[in-house]
Design a protein around this nucleic acid. Sequence first.
DNA 1: GTCTATACCAGGATAGAC
DNA 2: GTCTATCCTGGTATAGAC
Lengths: 234, 234
Amino acid sequence: MDGDIRFSTFKRDVNLTMVEICREIFRNNSGGIKIQKEEVAVRSLAKILEAALRLCNRKGFASMSLRDLSRESGVSLGAMYSYFSSKDDLLRLMQGHGRSVIVRILEGVISGIDDPWIRLRRSIQAHLYASEVLQPWFYLSYMETRNFPADEFKKALESELYTERMFVDIIMDGQSRGLFRPADAELLGSAIKSMLQDWYLKRWKYTARKVSVEDYGNFMLGFIESYLMDREIS
Amino acid sequence: MDGDIRFSTFKRDVNLTMVEICREIFRNNSGGIKIQKEEVAVRSLAKILEAALRLCNRKGFASMSLRDLSRESGVSLGAMYSYFSSKDDLLRLMQGHGRSVIVRILEGVISGIDDPWIRLRRSIQAHLYASEVLQPWFYLSYMETRNFPADEFKKALESELYTERMFVDIIMDGQSRGLFRPADAELLGSAIKSMLQDWYLKRWKYTARKVSVEDYGNFMLGFIESYLMDREIS
DNA sequence: GTCTATACCAGGATAGAC
DNA sequence: GTCTATCCTGGTATAGAC
């Protein structure tokens, strides 16, 4: 449809390789990371974070021991402590970055667009594609929120409400212009979020059924648009 | 609407008090539980399981230490081991029961009903209400699946697919009778599940917004029915 | 049946050699 | 910068008094 984002285009444009992400993390954390040489640091960091995400997704953050992580990443226990100062700090490192990336992406794709139908489509697609590219981050951040240190916990909740708000605003805008049917915008926003989350939380299911991220997005959009166009029921 | 289940009725009918549940657990686990007197056992068991669910919901199973649990439940560390033989065993105790309860409920509410519209409404309502009454169980079983011992893990996945299948079957039945629009029944089934799950996973959000379980159910049903009735789009 | 005391081990964190 | 060896806390689980 007009204004739609294709996954392949999206992926090319955001270009989020692990190494690039780690480079950015390194530059923003010169305080916490004790290594000087950027090349060295970025390489180890990538190994550590990749392994950490893999393990956290498999067993959860609390059940991942740093000895596991050392084995999985190939970086020794001692050396890892040159990259973070505690296990909680490692969580912060993984977490903080993903958030900034997603906000940047979401705001980018709808800026300058006026039509609520298109804003809705594009923001859902972007959210879905971002979670596809950064699946382990999204999964971690959903499942481990409870175990975050207080400051991170608060930020995670705010982030949930922030993205939901984005959808609610678009819906209310469409309604006030008489384009969308009247309906509870907040509940619809929550429903959209929960479907978006299902995509990255239950990857095993969708992979097994060979549903692609674009299939999923198209289904979601058809479902939601059908509701918003419906004039029969008040 | 006709055939609808009211939450108050549902709650009265299933009558799932903690003590009743613990009594049933006790009777099914006379092997594992070393206490003889039923009254004594049920009382302690209720204290332990209530506390365990509270702590698991707050910090996760892995982060809950048995010392925490002893403090929270008021039962000493030593005494608790008369009720289960290991921490994993405690998980099995909490988990196994909930599953049998939910299957029993879900099958009960649609047996003998033919109309797909009513079957759909009732199965969604029952699922939602069950998760409301047993919220901590549902939450635990969703969030901790990864950490279950292999056999329990498998059962949890099967259970996810089983209830989803229930919805898919109803949808396909409605479609083949020409009552529901053609649409991807499996994806719609998944979407229904994800909305049902959002209710018990994000209670904080809905409580803060003063959305009742019946409000939520009505919204879900309106959303889904609007889609299934829609004849405009193929 | 329930408690306290304790064994034993795994995990996070650090020191210091290379 | 990275590794190995080690410290020490806090976890699960048990023994045995009451």
